[in-house]
Simulated assay, not measured.
Amino acid sequence: MRRAALTSLFVLAAASTFAGALVRVDHAIHTGAAHLWLAAGFSFLKVAVAVGFAVFVFGRGPAVAPCRTPVAFAACALAIGSPFALEPPTRAAGAAIAGEIIAMLGCAFLLRSAASLGRSFSVLPEARRLVTDGPYRYVRHPVYLGELTAFAGLVVASATPRNVLCAAVFALAQATRMRLEEKALASAFPEYADYAARTGRLLPRFSTSVRPRPREEPA
């Protein structure tokens, strides 16, 4: 029941955003305004993410360590709602183009990371399976990294006060989700501690230790 509700929510969000994007495309065709094309691209990015999440939610497996606390629900609601509260670009500018390129790269990375999760994908910060391959070889939360990158790009594209506020709310919600997810994974998988020790949360952790040289024995 909860899976169907979440899938339906993402599908409805995608459909609503897609309809708005088509309206902007129609206006752009008739007016030739470049900023309307940027606004349409802005909306299509959000559609791609919503559709991808609907597919992953529908096909996910059962949770090993569920997390159903009010804080978890609130963090997820804020993280999901924040992108749809963003204001699109209102004029064509270098920042808008650069921001949408950043957002597209972030979207591509988060969808690739979510594909690595497969049936372990979660919306709530739950544990289904410990995934350590693909992008998870380098960072513990590549999906969140992709989402944060995409969100940052959208804010660069349209840096209004409202969008900056949305970014702050989104970052706080994602930080909360990461903390809760790590707690769930640590409780479900004892080997998670070793994985976390050698893998950065959002940035790759490169070892700087130098192997000591062998001590020379006197002749």
Rank of each mutant, 00 (worst) to 15 (best):
A184E: 01
R119S: 01
A65N: 13
T176D: 00
R201S: 04
V210K: 14
R137F: 09
A39R: 07
L12S: 03
L110F: 00
D133K: 09
I29M: 14
H35I: 07
A150D: 03
I80F: 02
P83K: 02
A171C: 11
A173P: 15
F58P: 07
Y195K: 12
S187T: 06
Y192M: 01
P190K: 05
P214N: 04
L78R: 13
P212S: 08
T69P: 08
V156T: 13
L203F: 15
L145T: 12
T69R: 09
R129P: 00
T160Q: 04
A65W: 05
P212A: 02
S209Q: 15
F206I: 15
S43Y: 06
L148W: 05
T17K: 01
S187L: 07
A114Y: 10
S122N: 02
G81V: 00
V23N: 07
S158H: 00
A127N: 03
A74T: 02
G32P: 12
A127V: 11
A34I: 11
R91H: 03
V25S: 02
L165K: 04
T17W: 05
R162Q: 14
A159W: 08
F53L: 15
T31I: 03
E191I: 03
I102C: 14
I80T: 05
N163D: 08
R3W: 11
S43T: 08
A167D: 07
P83G: 12
A65L: 03
L172T: 11
L172K: 09
V164W: 13
A75M: 08
V25D: 08
A14V: 02
R215I: 01
A54R: 00
A95H: 12
A5V: 13
M104H: 00
T7M: 02
R24Y: 10
E87P: 04
H27F: 12
I102K: 13
A197W: 12
I102T: 14
M178L: 04
P204D: 00
P66A: 10
A175F: 09
Y136I: 08
L9Y: 11
R140L: 09
A108T: 07
L130Y: 12
W37V: 00
E87H: 05
R177P: 07
A48L: 08
S16G: 15
D194W: 03
A219W: 15
S158D: 06
Y136K: 04
A173I: 10
T208I: 15
E216L: 06
A167Q: 06
P135T: 01
L124N: 09
M1P: 12
P70Q: 04
L117A: 09
G153V: 02
M178K: 07
L117M: 00
